[in-house]
Structures are given as C-alpha cells and as structure tokens.
Amino acid sequence: MAEVSEPIVRIRNLSKAYRRGTQVIPVLTGINFDIARGEFVALMGPSGSGKSTLLNLIAGIDSADQGSIQIGDVEITRLGESELARWRAGSVGFIFQFYNLIPVLTAYENVELPLLLTHLSRRERHEHVEAVLNVVGLADRMDHYPSQLSGGQQQRVAIARAIVTDPEILVADEPTGDLDRVSAEEILLLMDRLVHEFGKTVIMVTHDPRAAEKAHLIRHLEKGELSVT
C-alpha cells in the first residue's frame, strides 16, 4: 500500500437534495469525509444511496446545496462554472462505466482531448499521449477507433485519457460495471498500479465487492449518510 499522507479531499457538512416539482428529495445529508493523498477509496451502497452524487460533487461536475469540498488547496465549492471547468481539466481524471470515449476520434485523439485545454505544443502532447498509452499497454492501438477495440481496451484508453494531464485525483464510476471478469480484473490491476506506482488518489463507486476489495478503504453510503468499513 502506498504511504498515506495528508488528506487531499476534505469534505465538510456536505448536503445535496434534488427537487422534483415542489418535492425535495435529500440525497446527501451532512457528509464529513477525508481522503488521504494516494488512497484508493471505494464508495459502495444501494442504488439511490447518493454515492454517484458524492462522486460527482468531488469531481466538480455537480454543485452542493450546503457544505464544502476542498481538493488539495482548492475549495471547489466556491468556484464558479468556468473556474470549475478549468480546475477539472487539470486536477481530475474521469473513468466512466461505459468508457465514454468519443466514437469519431481515434484512441490517440481521445487521450489527447484533455491536453487540448493546456498550453502544450503538439509535440509535447504527442509525448504525453504516447507515454500514457504505454502505461495502459495500448501504444500499438493508438490509431484504432473505439469501435475497433474491446470493452477492456476501451476502458484502458479511458484510463489513459484520465491520467494524461497527471491529475491529483481519479474518479471512477463503476469502472468494471460493463466488463467481463477477466477485463474487470485487468482494469482493477491497472488502477491499483496507478495508486501504487504513480501515487494517484482514486475514488471509485462500485457495486462489485471484488472491485471494492482492491481499495484501501471502503465507505458505505446508506440513505445519504456515510459509514466506514
């Protein structure tokens, strides 16, 4: 296990509710939660427990009703929309259940996408993309379109896209949910490697106990409240 240091994620008194007409449905209630740098955390819980909402809030793609989230030195709950977009581009890597690759772009171009928001030159971008595709073992498939890759390979390309900007944290929403057992195992091993070799902080939402076993810490959400395992 990587050396666990100071918290990179600090969540304080976080609440979120959804509104359906006049009805208010609380999803998260007074969440307090720290995640240490280099930690691999699994968020588990039944459907509707608020785990994906918590992940979205940590990733800065949803806004809280109350409370604060601090990632590193940045309190993202205070950021405006465009500042948040800039922050996401440099600080968070996303891994989705259905990979969410852009079908009309090649593996190389998909991985390069986040780098288009940086000031890197074309050559520098090429070096970065090649390096991360080597990490995920797909350098030889860089010219392939997503439809020409298997599910496991697509998820590896998605992981390469997530780490290409060298973000502090990776958020993964059911990363093995659409994969067969063998591919799922490969992806979990790769994520484990990202934590141990590259010191990434990974926050993963999963229903799969085998996936959760890879995490250092499993947090359960039940009716919007956290418990530790």
Binding site: A85, R88, F94, I102, L117, R161
Partner: peptide, 8 residues
Amino acid sequence: TLRALGFP
C-alpha cells in the same frame, strides 16, 4: 463527457 473533461 467533454464538459466533464473541462471543455467550457
């Protein structure tokens, strides 16, 4: 996805 990646 593009918006999540940081595209404004």
